[in-house]
Each structure stands twice: as structure tokens, then as C-alpha cells.
């Protein structure tokens, strides 16, 4: 079974470092980025399933980064991490395509839980895509019979 590949995006480097350590202790591989731009670059190079994205960052902020990710990498699941417990910012994130949102301070278990959910969603989606693609190439026995009759 495929393992979850996470990316953490936050301007707090200590947060990134510690969280990465915690995740690796749980056996989850995680990449980190300190800005939206860096995150987009990494996404271009590597296959990432779930991005944990801080809403408030200097430069390109969380919502802008989210929109850019969704535009360029629609398959990536994004979970917003906000220090601002406003329903507004959460709603805005969800409207812009975020899968879920977390409120700071959040525990590592909750973070992993949400990330797993996002990963499963992504996997279901991939499954569907695979199914749809294979249907293009595979024909059902009835179709074959139909075609045979027409040939006659």
C-alpha cells in the first residue's frame, strides 16, 4: 500500500522542524516549506498527497497559495492550519478548495488524523480515475457480442 507523503508549509521554522520529527516518529514522511513559493516549487518536483498550509504567512499568504496549488495541482489535498479561529477564514479556505481546516494549537494526533482522511480521499479519487481510465480500454462481454452481431 502506498504511504502518505505530507508537506508542511509554515513560516515558523521551529514548528516545521519539530513537527517533521514527530511525524517521522510515527512513520510519516514529510517535506517542509517556509513559504508558498517554495511549496509550489517542491510540488512541481515531487508527488505530494497532502499539504498542511498555514493561513497567515508573510509574502504569499495561505489563501493565495491554496488557490495556486489547486489551480496547478488539483489532485493535491490541502488542509488549512489557522491561528485565527474565525469561521470566515475557514469558510474562505473551504470555498477555495481546501479539504479541511485545523485550528492552532493542534495536537499531533489530530493533525495526523486529518491528514490520513485527506489521503484516503485522494486515494479514493485516484481509484475512481483509474477505474474510469481502464473502462476506456476494457470492453464488457455484451459490447463484444453486440459488435460481433453488427459485423455479420
Amino acid at each position: 500500500m502506498e504511504k502518505i507523503k505530507l508537506m508542511l508549509v509554515d513560516d515558523e521554522e521551529r514548528f516545521l522542524a519539530t513537527t517533521k520529527k514527530l511525524l517521522s516518529k510515527r512513520g510519516i514522511e514529510a517535506l517542509t516549506a517556509t513559504s508558498g513559493g517554495e511549496a509550489l516549487e517542491i510540488l512541481q518536483q515531487k508527488n505530494i498527497h497532502v499539504v498542511i498550509l498555514d493561513v497567515k504567512m508573510p509574502g504569499m499568504d495561505g489563501i493565495d497559495t491554496l488557490k495556486e496549488i489547486k489551480r496547478r495541482f488539483p489532485m493535491v489535498e490541502v488542509i488549512m492550519l489557522t491561528g485565527h479561529a474565525t469561521v470566515e477564514s475557514a469558510i474562505e479556505g473551504l470555498k477555495s478548495g481546501a479539504t479541511d481546516y485545523l485550528m492552532k494549537p493542534t495536537g499531533i494526533d489530530e493533525l495526523i488524523g486529518r491528514a490520513e482522511e485527506g489521503f484516503q480521499k485522494r486515494q479514493r479519487l485516484e481509484e475512481k480515475i483509474r477505474m474510469a481510465q481502464s473502462r476506456k480500454f476494457m470492453k464488457s462481454p455484451r459490447d463484444i457480442l453486440k459488435e460481433a452481431e453488427q459485423d455479420k
Binding site: 515558523e12 519539530t18 513537527t19 514527530l22 485565527h84 492552532k104 494549537p105 499531533i108
Partner: peptide, 24 residues
């Protein structure tokens, strides 16, 4: 106070993570 709370939440997050790491 909302601004203040927001700013407090960031260090709180780090503290929490550090604490979790220590426990682990």
C-alpha cells in the same frame, strides 16, 4: 484581543509540539 490571541496561538502551537516531542 483577537489580534493578540492570534499571535499567541502560533507560539502555543510550537510549545505543544515541543511538549509532544519531549513526551515521545
Amino acid at each position: 484581543s483577537a489580534g493578540f490571541a492570534h499571535e499567541i496561538n502560533n507560539p502555543l502551537q510550537i510549545i505543544k509540539n515541543e511538549q509532544t516531542l519531549i513526551e515521545m
